[in-house]
Write a protein that binds this DNA or RNA. Structure first.
Length: 420
DNA sequence: TCTGGGGTCCTAGGACCC
DNA sequence: TCTGGGGTCCTAGGACCC
């Protein structure tokens, strides 16, 4: 048996912890550059504003309803995520943190109490200790736990907790869930299935596996099997070795000059390299991509990418910056209004298993590792960008817009809540 | 004026090998 | 009338997740 703990309207709930007067008030959180809506309170969901809605399309509705609007504050959300997850781990041995606001629990290790009672208590404790409301769904497979969670969240009668096994009429339960809300069925397949008159989870569960395999590949088959109660996804299915690290951003303003673009790309590769070293990995390939704004139909469109292979997998900023700028040079064209750029690191190997190359340059890798270690230590202890590479620039005219960010209440001394 | 960021997996098709 | 069989590797594109 699995339980899925899912935080309700997570980013909005984080904002509300420090601004409790926003309870019951319509509230949203925006993406980077304050572009589109990435979290909505229940009040806003009821207004019919969809997930990912571009903000400019809904300006009027938001103003009319006095919707409280925040730029995203990922330091705050990350910290609250850690609090929720460590609370869950205090009451469960086997936990898979699935996303910033969700975790699966292996219920087979929970004894001496009914699963339902366990979940009710866990939910209360998370609310009391961390301040975040959650929903908990339980089922014999992850897909059913997800589905049950969905029903618990959307129907107040369940008060946020529901166990598939306790529910007598399974068909009716599955009929409550639209096919597109099933875990693993996205927008495209939902449309496709609707075309075949399949609208809810019960109908999808009863389709022939052969038909599903033909039309939705092996993943569709797994989803149907899981709906039927056969577990295809174990509690720890996510491999711990990651395959890529991406840092990309849309620009606050269009970038036209090669100089600005070089600074942006250098900044992104440094950020990606930080993540790389945090995970004790080294990268063999550096890919850079740039693109114009696809929403501007009257502008010339261009997008391209280029990948550089390093002599040996590296963790060293100067090597990585050098490669990224070489890649950029291959693809950058004058005369376009660029909206976005990104750096992708792949060919990731554990730092201590890097294949040495015959083409080693003069400074050996031990020294590079030490230098980057000191570099990271300084920035960890004295704040981000205390020391940095000149290539990353100083003005950053292209950086993101975030005009409505709340304070980083829990991670920055200068932004702590003042009392009295 | 204004449309996010960061990931994974699967499949089809082409190039190439014997 | 007639054009093999079996395999690997790579890439692009499409689907999904949060």
């Amino acid at each position: 048996m699995f339980a899925l703990v899912d935080c309700n309207n997570f980013f909005v709930s984080c904002e509300r912890v420090f601004q409790p007067h926003l309870e019951q008030k319509p509230t949203i959180v925006l993406s980077n550059n304050d572009g589109c809506v990435i979290a909505r309170s229940n009040e806003v969901k009821k207004m019919g504003i969809p997930m990912g809605a571009p903000i400019h399309k809904y300006k009027h509705l938001l103003k009319q309803n006095n919707v409280k609007t925040f730029s995203c504050n990922f330091q705050l959300y990350g910290d609250f995520s850690n609090r929720v997850m460590s609370t869950i781990k205090a009451f469960a041995e086997d936990v898979q943190v699935y996303s910033i606001d969700e975790a699966f629990i292996n219920l087979d290790l929970i004894h001496n109490v009914s699963h339902y009672e366990y979940a009710v208590e866990l939910r209360n404790i998370i609310k009391q200790w961390v301040g975040i409301p959650t929903s908990i769904g339980m089922g014999p497979t992850k897909t059913l736990a997800k589905l049950t969670n969905e029903v618990a969240k959307k129907n107040e009668e369940f008060q946020g907790v529901l166990n598939y096994d306790d529910y007598s009429n399974k068909d009716e339960l599955l009929e409550r869930v639209e096919v597109g809300d099933i875990w693993g069925v996205g927008r495209r397949y939902a449309q496709f299935l609707n075309g075949w008159n399949i609208y809810n989870a019960r109908q999808f569960r009863d389709m022939s596996l052969k038909w599903v395999k033909q039309n939705m590949s092996i993943n569709g088959v797994r989803t149907v099997m899981e709906l039927r109660g056969t577990a295809c996804f174990p509690i720890h299915d996510a491999p711990d070795t990651r395959k890529s690290i991406l840092t990309s951003r849309s620009f606050g303003y269009s970038v036209t000059s090669a100089k600005d673009m070089r600074e942006a790309v250098a900044s992104y590769v440094c950020r990606a390299a930080e993540k790389l070293r945090e995970e004790k990995l080294a990268a063999q390939y550096v890919t850079v991509f740039i693109k114009t704004n696809k929403h501007r139909q009257n502008q010339q469109q261009y997008s391209n990418s280029y990948t550089i292979t390093l002599n040996q997998a590296s963790i060293y900023n100067p090597d990585l910056i050098d490669a990224a700028l070489k890649a950029l040079k291959k693809i950058f064209l004058d005369g376009y209004y660029y909206k976005k750029a990104g750096v992708l690191l792949t060919g990731l190997v554990p730092m201590n298993q890097v294949q040495l190359s015959f083409l080693n340059d003069t400074r050996n890798s031990d020294q590079k590792e030490k230098i980057m270690h000191v570099f990271d230590e300084i920035n960890n202890n004295y704040g981000k960008r205390t020391i940095r590479y000149a290539a990353t620039g100083t003005r950053k005219p292209w950086s993101m817009k975030q005009d409505m960010r709340s304070p980083r209440y829990t991670t920055k001394w200068s932004e702590l809540r003042r009392v009295g």
